[in-house]
Design a protein around this nucleic acid. Structure first.
Lengths: 214, 214
DNA sequence: TGTACATCAGTGAACGCGCGTTCACTGATGTAC
DNA sequence: TGTACATCAGTGAACGCGCGTTCACTGATGTAC
């Protein structure tokens, strides 16, 4: 134990510098500029050093993807669990919408990145972003089941997935409007999302198509 | 007028070959592979020929972006206009949702491309994709106003935009589920979208926040 | 504690690659007379 | 219609660039005794 860094610590530090450099580049919208050379340059190390820490560009992207979305995923899941313990009334539902909106508003760059890479198949960032949405969808479906929505048949379960997809999409599109400056008031957004649930709630008694549309 | 091609025709033909090559590459998910060299290669011409037809890569992208989304935009607008002329009942509303769903289902690659590039700022493809959504949003807002939704104050107009955003987002996310194979039945999707309108319809009598949540 | 050796994080230089772009050139098409 | 010249679509070769990756090397840190 000396005052100076141990070798292992120094190496770990360099690795973190590389990851931070890559993170900075990518959150600034420069996915395509995340190259081994460019990341090394931004981290202040020689190009060859990159390969002391990562096998290649893709290896870095895998590490970075996990780091970027894991914390967000954890926070979302935790807050959702907490909200579930409260009694089930309208104000609680509003609160359930407010938390993801706040989380997004606090991390606009990360949110925009998630949207940007979501439909890029076969890339680590895309996978990670889709995993984030997938988890949320599963959580919402579980919650709907707990609230008494039918989930006996595969058609019923599919409808629950559709509802979850819609809730997520509605939350995201309003949150995007917020971070773009068009919808400044988060409370207003939460209210609007509650209205959406009033509509999809009608699916609770939806047994077949004609029953819903007649 | 000869049997063979005139010079002008031959040149236009080459230009179209380049555009088609680029279109093929991009719809197959290869945005990054749309380089002057690669497009020329796929079109079967020399690299230098590319510059006889386009100033640079970006110039091609501008031309391509317009070509890609313009037709779709036209079809969407036309079908929406036609639907508006019919009497206003539930089945008509369903039909209004079915047409964009069918349009998307018929052009899955184009739809996925629109989603992929939507959040890429400063690129011609991104601009074009956002223009497509923007038009649809304006159309929906106009329709809501025609149906008697309040639009006197800026808060009311903002809420109409929110509703339009939600309708578009819900349509798109269900359409994505369809082209991904999860939601095979378009009628079921249209029914679900009608339910969403049942919820957002409540905003018609929404005068302030407490009125909506109380 | 001091010395001799082993380990290892980081480096500079080099390689081939595909890219964007330019340019002098070719050979076919168009036109003036 | 035939000839001589002008136009022009397309080409191959060349350039510099940033990239991914490798490798022999350096100098500091760690360790055995």
């Amino acid at each position: 134990m000396k005052g100076a860094l141990t070798r292992r610590e120094a190496k770990e530090r360099t690795r973190q510098r590389l990851l931070e450099a890559a993170r900075g580049i990518i959150l600034a919208g420069g996915e395509t500029r995340v190259s081994a050379s460019n990341v090394a340059k931004h981290a202040g190390v020689a190009g060859a050093t990159f390969y002391e820490h990562f096998a290649n560009r893709d290896d870095l992207m895998v590490a970075l993807s996990e780091q970027l979305f894991d914390e967000l995923r954890g926070q979302l899941a935790r807050q959702r669990r907490e909200a579930l313990e409260a009694p089930n009334d309208e104000e609680i539902l509003r609160q359930e919408f407010r938390t993801p909106l706040e989380l997004i508003a606090a991390n606009p760059d990360l949110f925009r990145l998630a949207l940007r890479v979501r439909h890029h198949p076969g890339t680590p960032l895309g996978e990670s972003s889709r995993r984030l949405t997938g988890n949320t969808r599963n959580d919402i479906v579980a919650e709907l089941v707990a609230r008494g929505y039918p989930a006996a048949t595969s058609a019923e379960r599919r409808r629950l997935e559709m509802i979850a997809d819609i809730h997520i999409a509605a939350t995201e599109v309003l949150a995007l409007g917020h971070v773009s400056g068009r919808y400044p008031d988060l409370d207003e957004l939460a209210d609007m999302l509650v209205l959406v649930t009033r509509g999809t709630r009608l699916a609770r008694s939806w047994t077949d198509r004609t029953a819903a549309t007649g």
